[in-house]
């Protein structure tokens, strides 16, 4: 579709119109501004109506196990250290010692300087190690500092890197800058998977979330992620709908699978099931795997475990039956 030679080499495997969008900043801006709109009222109605789907009995038990396997068990606090990471790693390997058939979680998500501790604690478990990077959570630093952080994480053995986009640049319309940053991180973090945090709570509306999703996908994100968890509102159902819609359309247009990770604010099993319903109905059944969908959460896991026990035993036990996250 591109007649003149592009100034950037076109992205491998992208159809013409998407490759064209990555050629230079002007083309990218045209593409993002030309995307069809999102109507907030209709989107929120759809999210609310799908949230009413009933998942009961055996189906609920399966949904809980599916959700547990998608959890990125997360600790991102100033007080984090090696002992906290070891505690969470033990829980990530075996979330509930009373029930050995509980699936392990997908990954443990920590700050870059604790990646080596997490890797050591999780060796051989099959649980991935994810690291936030790029001046998380604000993203306010130089690209050099950001890349240095990414290198630290990857050299320490992180399987996945969760970067934040430069929201200031995005809101100023400097899409090219945001794009370049993601591409550079993408290059620096290989072979680790790249999750791009859009921080939707700071983007000021669904149209911008939609544009940011496409921008991140064009720049090579493996996952698009709603939030850092440090900004309110964090993940919401309608916002996650927008991200799911983006990865589905991306797959339809390119054939490439990409994932979605809502993070922050998902605390209960009921919430998690609603997100799974959204995954099924908005993206499709193929996305119902940890390779394509993750929950960024900490407290959620305990509620899932308690609800799982309730489904099996027929009664609710209490919060002290499962391990605290300390």
């Amino acid at each position: 579709m591109v007649d003149s030679p592009p100034s950037n080499p076109p992205k491998a495997g992208l159809p013409g119109d998407l490759a064209e969008a990555t050629r230079d900043e002007a083309a990218l801006t045209r593409f993002l501004r030309g995307l069809p709109g999102i109507d907030a009222v209709g989107l929120e109605q759809r999210a609310a109506s799908l949230a009413g789907r009933a998942v009961k009995g055996d189906a609920k038990l399966r949904a809980i196990d599916t959700a547990i396997g998608m959890v990125d068990l997360t600790t991102l606090e100033g007080a984090d250290n090696a002992s906290k990471v070891r505690a969470l790693a033990a829980k990530a390997r075996r979330p509930d010692s009373r029930f050995p058939d509980v699936p392990r979680v997908a990954a443990l998500c920590v700050y870059p300087d604790l990646v080596s501790d997490a890797v050591a604690a999780l060796r051989g478990s099959g649980v991935g190690v994810a690291s936030v990077a790029t001046a998380f959570p604000s993203g306010r630093s130089t690209i050099r500092a950001k890349l240095a952080e990414v290198e630290l994480a990857v050299e320490s053995g992180a399987d996945e890197v969760d970067m934040v986009i430069d929201r200031g640049a995005f809101l100023a319309g400097e899409y090219g800058r945001v794009f370049d940053e993601i591409e550079q991180v993408r290059a620096a973090c290989a072979p680790a998977h790249l999750k791009v945090i859009l921080e939707t709570g700071e983007l000021g509306g669904y149209d911008n979330v939609w544009r940011a999703s496409w921008l991140a996908l064009l720049a090579g994100a493996d996952f698009i992620k709603t939030s850092t968890g440090k900004v309110s509102p964090a993940a919401t159902l309608p916002v996650t709908h927008v991200l799911l819609r983006a990865v589905r359309e991306w797959r339809d247009r390119t054939g490439q699978p990409r994932g979605v990770k809502p993070a922050g604010g998902i605390r209960t099993t009921k919430d998690a099931v609603r997100y799974l319903v959204a995954v099924l109905e908005v993206a499709g059944p193929e996305w119902l795997t940890p390779e394509s969908f993750r929950f960024g959460a900490s407290g959620l896991l305990n509620d899932l475990l308690m609800q799982r026990e309730t489904q099996l035993d027929g009664h609710y036990s209490g919060p002290d039956q499962v391990a605290v996250d300390l």
């Binding site: 789907r53 009933a54 998942v55 009961k56 009995g57 055996d58 189906a59 609920k60 399966r62 949904a63 196990d65 599916t66 799974l276 319903v277 995954v279 099924l280 059944p285 119902l288 795997t289």
Partner: peptide, 11 residues
């Protein structure tokens, strides 16, 4: 393999 998410009848 059981489907990861299904809607059971909720009558």
């Amino acid at each position: 393999k059981p489907r990861p998410l299904a809607y059971a009848p909720a009558l």
